[in-house]
C-alpha cells in the first residue's frame, strides 16, 4: 500500500466525516468548527492533486476568511442565552431521500463513465504557470473578478453602515 493511498483515504475520511458532523450536529458552533476541518481536508486533497497554490488559497480564503465571517455571523445573530446555539431540522425525510438519490446517481454516473485518463507529468509547482496564465489568456476574467470583489466589498460596507444607522435610530 502506497503512502499516497493512505493519505488519500485519511484526508477523504476527515473531509467527509467532518462534513457529516457539520450537517447533523445540533449546535451551530460545532457545525462551524466541523466546517473548518472539512475545508482543511479539501485543501489536503488539493495537495494530493498537485494543486499547491489552490491549496494555499483555500486555506487563506476559506479557513482564514469565510469561516471567520460565518463565526461572526453566528455570534451576531444568536437570540438570547437560553436556546441560542440550537438549530432544528425540518423536512428530514424528503431531504435525506433527495440527497441520497443525488449521491447514488452521481456515483453511478462517475463510475460507469469511461474517462479518458491522460498521463500528466508530476508538477513541482503551479504558481509560475498559473501566474503566466492569469496575465495571458485569463486577463479578462482576472480583471472582472477584481471588479466583482470591489463591488462586493462596497455593497457589504453599504449594507453594514445602514445596519448601524437603523439600529441607532430605533
Amino acid at each position: 500500500m502506497e503512502l499516497t493511498t493512505i493519505l488519500f483515504y485519511l484526508f477523504s475520511v476527515t473531509t467527509l466525516g467532518a462534513a457529516a458532523v457539520m450537517v447533523f450536529s445540533r449546535n451551530i458552533v460545532h457545525s462551524a468548527f466541523a466546517l473548518m476541518f472539512t475545508l482543511i481536508g479539501v485543501a489536503a486533497l488539493y495537495v494530493l492533486l498537485y494543486a499547491d497554490f489552490l491549496a494555499a488559497t483555500q486555506l487563506l480564503v476559506y479557513v482564514g476568511g469565510i469561516l471567520i465571517l460565518i463565526l461572526f455571523g453566528v455570534m451576531l445573530t444568536t437570540q438570547g442565552h437560553s436556546f441560542s446555539f440550537k438549530i432544528n431540522s425540518v423536512n428530514l425525510i424528503p431531504a435525506s431521500v433527495l440527497s441520497l438519490a443525488t449521491a447514488v446517481l452521481l456515483i453511478f454516473a462517475f463510475t460507469s463513465t469511461e474517462w479518458t485518463i491522460a498521463e500528466v507529468s508530476e508538477r513541482d509547482d503551479t504558481v509560475y504557470e498559473l501566474g503566466m496564465m492569469l496575465m495571458g489568456d485569463y486577463i479578462l476574467p482576472f480583471i472582472i473578478a477584481g471588479v466583482l470583489l470591489l463591488i462586493a466589498i462596497i455593497g457589504a460596507i453599504v449594507m453594514a453602515t445602514r445596519l448601524t444607522a437603523t439600529s441607532t435610530e430605533g
Binding site: 467527509l16 462534513a19 450537517v23 455571523g73 438549530i87 423536512n91 431531504a95 435525506s96 433527495l98 449521491a103
Partner: peptide, 18 residues
Amino acid sequence: AILFSLGLMAVLSKRNVI
C-alpha cells in the same frame, strides 16, 4: 459526490440561514 449530497442535505433540511 458525497460532499455535494451532504451540502444538499444541509441546504434542504436546515432552517437557519447560516
